[in-house]
Simulated scan of single mutants.
Amino acid sequence: MGPPAAAVDHPGSGARPTAEELAAAADQTIPDVITSGLDVLFVGINPGLWSAATGWHFARPGNRFWPALHRGGFTPRRLHPSEQSLLPGLGLGITNMVARASARADELTAEELIAGGAILTDKVARYRPAWVAVVGVTAYRIGFARPRAGFGPQPELLAGARLWVLPNPSGLNAHFTPETLGVAFGELRAAVAGG
């Protein structure tokens, strides 16, 4: 896993990384958007190639994270992935279960997800968010040995943080529409607001 791929500098422009930039992004990492004491730390499965090529989390067009974040009431407007640095000011952050980028999350091994769960636990202990929201139930089930876990609040804490599992916002997840993802994010928002 090498250093982060060079960021493509066109914030908000919608310009697409080239095929060469996407290919070069495989196995790269991107920095977390994190600081101490967040209200919610969102945890992706791993960066996609588009994210690794741009340096922005959930950057691929068609990924529904940013619209769901807004529909769920976490942001005052729909943010572009290039605006991810605004999140800590809203009490939000982003990290991943597995740091390395891949074309698809199903390219990850169970061992990587389990190791990622341990790294995430250490990160949560260090940064102390109030809530941790894993976006992807399968990654959560494997990474934390919780084969029967479902969506929503989890009974256990993660390094002292309350834990919630959200649907994967990838455009490949046909089980959830933009509207139902917004509802799922809104349920977490209500729980966070309720303390």
Rank of each mutant, 00 (worst) to 15 (best):
G44K: 01
G116W: 12
I119D: 12
G55F: 10
E179S: 14
L90Y: 14
A125K: 03
A53Y: 00
H57P: 03
G160T: 02
A161I: 11
H80E: 15
R148L: 13
F58S: 13
R16C: 11
A26M: 03
T121N: 05
P169A: 15
A145F: 00
A5Y: 05
A68G: 09
R126Y: 03
G160S: 05
E111T: 11
Y127N: 07
G89M: 11
R162F: 11
A190S: 10
F151V: 07
G48Y: 03
N168G: 13
L49F: 06
A184Q: 01
G91S: 10
G136P: 03
E112H: 04
Q154C: 01
A184D: 00
P61Y: 08
A52N: 13
A68W: 14
W131V: 04
A52C: 10
A193D: 02
G182T: 04
T138D: 07
G44Q: 02
V135Q: 06
A25Q: 07
L86D: 11
S51N: 02
A68M: 12
P178G: 13
A191W: 00
I34R: 13
P76R: 09
V98K: 05
P67I: 04
A99N: 08
E21M: 12
N63W: 13
Q84L: 11
L188S: 03
T18E: 10
T18C: 02
W66V: 09
V98L: 12
L158F: 03
G37N: 07
N96K: 01
V8L: 13
R128Q: 08
I142D: 02
G2L: 06
G160N: 02
R146M: 04
T54W: 08
P11D: 05
Y140T: 03
P17H: 05
E83Y: 14
R16H: 10
S13W: 07
G143S: 03
A174K: 15
E111G: 05
L163T: 09
N168R: 04
G117E: 00
I119R: 14
H57M: 05
A174R: 15
R162T: 11
R104Q: 11
T29E: 14
V33W: 01
H175R: 15
P81T: 06
G171H: 08
G12H: 08
Q28S: 14
I30F: 09
L49M: 06
A159C: 07
A139E: 00
G171S: 14
P76I: 05
R78N: 15
S36C: 12
R162A: 13
Q84M: 12
G160R: 02
P11H: 10
Q84K: 10
R71N: 14
A25C: 04
R16L: 14
R77V: 09
E112F: 03
W164F: 15
G194M: 00
G89P: 15
G194K: 00
W131P: 07
G182V: 03
